[in-house]
């Protein structure tokens, strides 16, 4: 099997894998980065979201061959100590319940605020609609994003 080199969370990593393997399995099962989650496998739920060159990508159906030479960031690499403004707001608003989708939610929210520091409700909905939460923590997700946005202003 070919050796594949990846840049994940600022580190060069290499794995033996078929180039068609979904990035998610490489991250989770080969590299031990289990923050991104498997849930639907067809890129409709968003639990597997990671940043590829700053953009959220559903890693569950992205072949690893498509991300060669890119900068991949998982929830584990979003911040040094779990203190990205979105993570802080998530804790302050006590967003997660079961928590399984929350890496995907946080990665998606971080992307939103990076591009739109002050989103309105509709913009939050439009962007975050991509990630499912079965515990339906949406009300707090909205509040946490608004909080992170507000904290970012001051």
């Amino acid at each position: 099997m070919p050796e594949i080199s990846l840049n994940v969370n600022g580190e060069k990593m290499s794995v033996d894998a078929d180039p068609s393997t979904p990035l998610l399995w490489i991250l989770r099962e080969k590299l031990g980065l289990t923050g991104p989650k498997f849930s639907c496998g067809i890129a409709v739920c968003g639990a597997c979201m990671v940043h590829v060159d700053g953009k959220t990508v559903p890693s569950c159906n992205t072949p690893v061959s498509e991300v060669l030479g890119t900068e991949i960031t998982t929830i584990e690499g979003l911040s040094e100590n779990g203190d990205h403004p979105v993570q802080k707001a998530w804790i302050e608003e006590q967003v997660p319940q079961c928590g399984y989708c929350q890496s995907g939610q946080i990665m998606r929210a971080a992307e939103l605020l990076a591009n739109k520091p002050n989103p309105n409700r509709q913009e939050i909905f439009d962007h975050m609609k991509r990630v499912l939460c079965r515990c339906a923590t949406y009300y707090r997700i909205v509040k946490a994003i608004e909080k992170a946005a507000k904290d970012g202003e001051s």
């Binding site: 923050g35 929830i75 979003l78 993570q87 998530w90 804790i91 928590g99 929350q102």
Partner: peptide
């Protein structure tokens, strides 16, 4: 459990 559910 919440902090650990915010950093993976």
């Amino acid at each position: 459990d919440i902090p650990s559910k915010c950093d993976g």
